[in-house]
């Protein structure tokens, strides 16, 4: 099984607060890894470090064998790294479809010269992307709301828009930040099914989630983080059963 994302000796602190303390972590193709730990353990910070939102103090991150530490956020995305956000971060002035259409690694018309000198090529690729976007929307159960504004659809579906937007990237590595927070009913099952599908297609998936049942049902493996450190790695059932970790999690 190949390692898609490799994190080595990653360190980051803000003043006295350590959010990453010598983190070593691998994400493997076709596997779903769950990041668990109490609030403030450094889970979202780890996503921010990997995606380039925050610069690490030291350490290395490679994606498919290439160092990505020095790259800006958008270039990491163009190499096949996609993520969703805890607080959604959708584009409210765009419809669901247009939110998703911004997701492909190569966006037709981003280069101004292509808009002018290759208008046909841009239009053709735009049409291909629109078709692909509709397929992704069908797959995520959002087909019926493609033309709705994102703030008009239920919260669970909004979470799915974030996932659909990331899917357009054909990512090799997908980071999901609390995909289940505030989600219930149909959307819950849809997210679970979509994430499973994505992993089975060979993508390395990492999920930060507080919903223990979701993590247990979905993840092949879990990692327990506390105070910026990876304390344990193993099956989720084992991690949950470990009284030492439960104590840290609940602070009792």
């Amino acid at each position: 099984m190949t390692d898609v994302l490799k994190i080595r000796d990653l360190n980051k602190s803000f003043g006295g607060i350590v959010v990453a303390n010598n983190i070593d972590l691998d994400l493997r193709a076709g596997r779903v890894l769950g990041l668990i730990g109490p609030n403030g353990a450094g889970k979202t910070s780890l996503f921010n470090l990997v995606t380039g939102v925050v610069k690490p103090d030291s350490g290395s991150i490679t994606l498919n064998g290439d160092a990505i530490d020095a790259l800006p956020i958008y270039q990491r995305a163009r190499r096949g790294l996609a993520r969703t956000w805890q607080n959604l971060r959708l584009f409210p002035s765009l419809s669901v479809l247009d939110n998703v259409l911004l997701g492909p690694r190569d966006y037709p018309g981003e280069k101004l010269q292509s808009l002018i000198f290759d208008a046909r090529g841009v239009a053709r690729r735009q049409a291909e992307n629109t078709e692909k976007a509709h397929r992704v929307l069908q797959r995520t159960g959002l087909g019926a709301v493609a033309h709705s504004r994102v703030q008009d659809i239920p919260y669970g579906q909004q979470k799915l828009v974030g996932v659909a937007r990331a899917l357009m990237n054909d990512a090799r590595c997908l980071l999901l930040d609390e995909p289940m927070a505030g989600v219930e009913g149909q959307a819950y099952a849809a997210i679970q099914r979509v994430v499973r599908d994505i992993a089975e297609s060979g993508v390395a998936v990492c999920v930060v989630e507080h919903n223990v049942a979701f993590v247990r049902d979905l993840c092949d493996e879990g990692v327990f983080m506390f105070a910026g450190k990876v304390l344990a790695r193993g099956s989720v059932t084992e991690l949950i059963a470990d009284p030492r970790l439960t104590e840290l999690y609940f602070g009792t």
């Binding site: 939102v53 270039q75 584009f91 765009l94 259409l101 966006y107």
Partner: peptide, 21 residues
């Protein structure tokens, strides 16, 4: 296509960058 990008950029620059833009 630029209009779509400008709208998204105005809404949320970080999310926009994370899509590879």
């Amino acid at each position: 296509p630029y209009g779509r990008m400008m709208s998204a950029l105005r809404d949320d620059e970080l999310a926009f960058s994370m899509l590879g833009r």
